[in-house]
Design a binder for these strands. Structure first.
Lengths: 159, 159
DNA sequence: TATTGTTATACTCTATAACTATA
DNA sequence: TATAGTTATAGAGTATAACAATA
């Protein structure tokens, strides 16, 4: 196996290990100043990034989880007033999930807290390297999700 | 917030979303030809990368989980003959966890399957970009784990 | 009756706390 | 009695399956 490939995989794994643990998430919500579990944050930030209300199914697809999972967390977020249901403009009988003002504030705070870690870490990096990291990581994320998606389709059709 | 920073965070999150889901793990073990749950794989690959037997506590630290978690999975792996306990050469009363031949084979297969996704995705990339990605991702992983560690220490001492 | 979402349920992953063993 | 590890327990996180609703 190619040496740089191994370094890439190993580095990704280490990064995920650091960022994935419960303590890290706890620190994030503490920095953001709001008590939210991990799926809550994912949903709020997804809606923020989407920049428009989304259906349950769309959120689930985006987060790559099953819809009952989203249903439950959205219900909890709705009770807390962080999201609300609005009519789907394309389909009058359907609903979409929208951030409330409070939800937007919370989502922004979470996104900001995560960004601040990266910012702190990247502070010492020369600007060209920061830009290059952004470019390569974005490309990797694009290509990886595309690859896994086509592979999933070929697997399921082969079955 | 700086634009390239936002792209970096967002890309990392998408990458983690793709690679983290249960289906992805299932596909990995299928490709590797062995039934193992996620913590099992993490432990086996950790031992493989370490390239020497490790104590329970060391594995837990490396994976950034609590030791009871490791204890349980190691016990299961031991029953299946994938790892075994050997005397700690530095401390005759203690034990270390070692990969058996079968365990090594399984760990290699898992590491290989993960690497193959990256390989497939990076196949179209020009070599300089692949090398650059490896370098930058490694640096990011180093800096991030260092940052989170020092931050964790300052938080706990402040408390 | 096809699509979308929901309710019910169960399994996996991981943490905390309490206990044990060993020197 | 300090250290490392284990057992016991509980709580997140997420999937599957069965059901409901709506057109």
């Amino acid at each position: 196996m190619d040496e740089s490939l191994h370094r890439t995989v190993e580095s990704y794994r280490r990064l995920a290990t650091s960022l994935n643990r419960a303590k890290t998430h706890e620190r994030l919500t503490q920095a953001a100043g709001i008590r939210l579990d991990r799926p809550d944050v994912q949903i709020l930030v997804d809606l923020l990034d989407a920049d428009e209300p989304r259906r349950i199914g769309k959120i689930a697809e985006s987060l790559q989880v099953e819809s009952p999972h989203v249903t439950r967390h959205v219900a909890a977020l709705e009770r807390r007033g962080l999201v609300e249901r609005v009519r789907d403009p394309d389909d009058g009988r359907a609903w979409r999930i929208a951030l409330t003002d409070e939800g937007s504030t919370a989502a922004l705070a979470c996104r900001r807290a995560a960004a601040q870690w990266f910012e702190a870490v990247l502070a010492d990096w020369p600007e060209p390297e920061r830009a290059e990291l952004a470019r390569l990581l974005e490309k990797l994320a694009d290509d990886m999700s595309g690859y896994l998606k086509t592979q999933a389709e070929s697997t399921s059709s082969a079955r």
